[in-house]
Amino acid sequence: MTLFSRDDLDAAARLVHAVMPPTPAYAWPLLAERFGLQVVVKHENHTPIGAFKVRGGIVYLDRLKRERPEVKGIVSATRGNHGQSLAFAARHAGLPLAVVVPHGNSVEKNAAMRAFGAELIEHGRDFDEARERAAAIAAERGFEFVPSFHRDLVMGVATYGLELFLAHPDIDILYAPIGLGSGLCGLISARDLLGLKTRIVGVVSEDAAAYALSVEAGRVVEVNATNTFADGIAVRIPSAEALAIIIDGAERIVKVSEDAIAEAVRTYWTDTHNAAEGAGAAALAALAKEAPALKGLKAAVILSGQNIDRPVMLEILSGRTPKAM
């Protein structure tokens, strides 16, 4: 199941690459030594916002400006990287942007969104309550509400899958985190459009397992709360559209512990000297969990973002696991 054609994806890649170069995909030798197999890391932490979502914002805003130039502004909800993506793209498009974040959101992600030009509004206890407020602001101001899952967002982020699979078409198994689902759906779409057989595995926190529960049930299953420091995957209510693509195209979903995510952040720093936020390290945590069964395979992981607050990083590098944000 794909949302767009190969021609659409190639056009999206041209849009993205006019703004930023492809991100690297490296097979780090220390990771190979640690896990006993080749591990390719797709470095989506090496984008202008330090996360993969910048790609979706570029593509979404391009279509919006072309097809609806009368739009007065845009509004969305985020835990940080989606908001930075829209702020980056909205600045280039010359559109006002309001972003709603929950109370207690990452201080440094909030600062980055403001630096890109977003109006930041704090509301609610989690992403889903922030999303409700963003929808209300859209109605009040006549702004376009930008969801976290949309065809153009998926097509934009699928360009990192296109880059990865063109550089490494022989990947046997690929692990990627699941926030609201655009990244994983983009990878599934890129793989299918290229006709590859790579097994794609989604990753969630044990304490934010709505997508795992939903895949098991074959329908959207909401959870009452999330309890993970990996804010990028702290989702209570899955997207039905994303879920359908994941059920159709992902091999399975792996749940990882908070301690395992923290250890993966430390592993990235020790073995590659790259910073990873919690969501960005989740895929490596899943690979670490399953490494004994992967001998002889070529594996890949998505380092989806590096936007981790300094106090959280210090706590992790000191050997501890942070509490939920």
Rank of each mutant, 00 (worst) to 15 (best):
A87V: 07
A87F: 10
F88E: 03
F88V: 12
A89S: 13
A89T: 08
A89F: 04
A89L: 06
A90L: 11
A90E: 06
R91N: 10
H92W: 08
H92Y: 05
A93C: 13
A93R: 13
G94D: 12
G94Q: 10
G94Y: 09
G94I: 13
L95Y: 14
L95G: 14
P96Y: 03
P96L: 02
L97Q: 06
V99H: 11
V100I: 14
V100W: 12
V101F: 11
V101I: 15
V101D: 03
V101T: 11
P102Q: 07
P102R: 13
P102T: 10
H103C: 09
G104S: 06
N105I: 07
N105Y: 13
S106T: 10
V107E: 11
V107A: 13
E108C: 04
E108Y: 05
E108I: 10
E108F: 05
E108A: 09
K109R: 15
K109W: 09
K109T: 07
A111M: 08
A112W: 02
M113E: 08
M113V: 08
M113K: 14
R114L: 06
A115K: 11
A115Y: 04
A115Q: 08
F116R: 04
F116N: 08
F116H: 11
G117W: 03
A118I: 09
A118V: 05
E119D: 13
E119H: 05
E122H: 15
H123N: 14
H123I: 05
H123M: 09
G124E: 07
R125Y: 04
R125L: 07
D126F: 13
D128C: 03
E129F: 06
E129A: 11
R131S: 13
A134I: 04
A134V: 08
A134T: 11
A134D: 01
A135V: 06
A135S: 05
A136I: 05
I137S: 06
I137W: 10
I137F: 08
A139Q: 15
A139L: 15
A139M: 10
E140R: 12
R141A: 10
R141T: 11
R141V: 11
G142Y: 03
G142C: 01
G142E: 04
G142V: 06
F143M: 09
F145N: 02
V146A: 01
V146G: 02
P147I: 02
P147H: 02
S148T: 15
F149W: 07
F149P: 02
H150Q: 13
H150D: 02
R151I: 00
R151S: 00
R151V: 00
R151D: 00
D152G: 00
D152N: 04
D152R: 01
D152V: 01
L153F: 00
L153H: 00
M155T: 01
M155D: 01
G156D: 01
V157C: 06
A158S: 14
T159K: 12
T159Q: 07
Y160P: 02
G161W: 07
L162D: 00
L162Q: 01
L162T: 01
E163M: 04
E163C: 03
